[in-house]
């Protein structure tokens, strides 16, 4: 998709002009939001308060206050070991914080087990992909569907009670597989797929749950540039469908390209947040994360003033 490739080029200055309705809406929602850590959003879907997680002497996560705007794409960036994945684990019930509360759609999620978090509409993927190897790609997808009659022990024995639903789910899975260009692989074992394909499968599978909010932990890591483009398109299309996206990513071009808002974590704390352009220029962020080589202008300065 050549059109997309030019779009991702950081040299193209103002991409907001070519925005979609949802993108404009998301951008507008952030218009009055102050770019300081913990700022209030007009319509937050997720509100986190005082969440702390320690591993022995190490404080991996210590987030005072964070809100995620509904219907936006929010990026979570930060150096290795900043606590991003741990934060995801805490929010989705895969780990328990030492203290802290958080609400999703206004309802508290503290202490809610992970499967119930998913059922409430917050679905996550993992940094280390979890493809179900000895299930086929299609079976992986079907597993994501919710409210399946055939997952009840007694009904399972009588296929007529669940066959129609299974058919409908298969159709939906098929559509998603086409979208993620995995349809040719539908009957292969997931274990035979490459790392990047597994990332795609995991994302498609998460969408089978029909979430309100998806949390993607490094969805683009290990995915080739051409595929990255199509992944980016998918992530943007999630927003178009009204979903909220929170994703962890190390590639700044990508963050700049698709996110409406950026959260920066370092040593467990949210040290900055704001629109992508502003974050890239933020001193604290550059010190903690980006270093001196993240951007062309900085490199020019360095070259201009050699030591």
């Amino acid at each position: 998709m050549p059109a997309d490739l030019t779009k991702a080029d950081p040299a193209v200055p103002d991409r907001t002009k070519a925005g979609t309705p949802r993108k404009d809406a998301a951008r507008q929602a952030f218009a009055g939001v102050e770019a300081v850590p913990g700022s209030a959003k007009p319509d937050p879907i997720l509100v986190v308060d005082g969440v702390t997680r320690r591993f022995g002497g190490l404080t991996a996560v210590d987030v005072a206050h964070v809100e995620v705007q509904r219907g936006s794409i929010t990026a979570l960036i930060g150096p290795n070991g900043a606590g991003k994945s741990t934060f995801f684990n805490l929010l989705t019930g895969f780990d328990k914080p030492d203290v802290g509360t958080w609400t999703f759609n206004g309802a508290s999620l503290s202490g809610v087990p992970s499967h119930k978090v998913a059922r409430r509409g917050m679905v996550r993927t993992f940094q280390l992909t979890k493809a179900l190897s000895r299930l086929t790609v299609m079976q992986n997808m079907l597993l994501g569907a919710t409210g399946q009659k055939g997952e009840n022990f007694l009904r399972a024995i009588f296929p007529m009670t669940w066959r129609a639903q299974e058919k409908a789910n298969t159709l939906r899975a098929e559509e998603l597989l086409v979208r993620f260009r995995l349809d040719a692989k539908r009957n292969d074992f997931a274990g035979t797929m490459s790392g990047g394909q597994r990332k795609l499968l995991e994302m498609a599978r998460a969408l089978m749950v029909g979430p309100e909010m998806v949390m993607l932990d490094e969805p683009m890591a290990g995915v080739n540039p051409a595929l990255t483009q199509s992944l980016l398109t998918h992530v943007k299309s999630l927003r178009e469908e009204g979903m909220t996206v929170l994703f962890v990513e190390h590639d700044m071009d990508m963050v700049r390209d698709i996110s409406d808002w950026v959260l920066v974590m370092a040593q467990g704390k949210v040290i900055a947040e704001g629109p992508p352009e502003q974050i890239m220029a933020n001193e604290a962020v550059i010190d903690a994360y980006l270093g001196g080589h993240h951007d062309a202008p900085l490199q020019d300065e360095e070259q201009a003033a050699p030591r």
Partner: peptide
Amino acid sequence: DAVRSLGK
């Protein structure tokens, strides 16, 4: 964990 993350 993958199964948990899908709401089972």
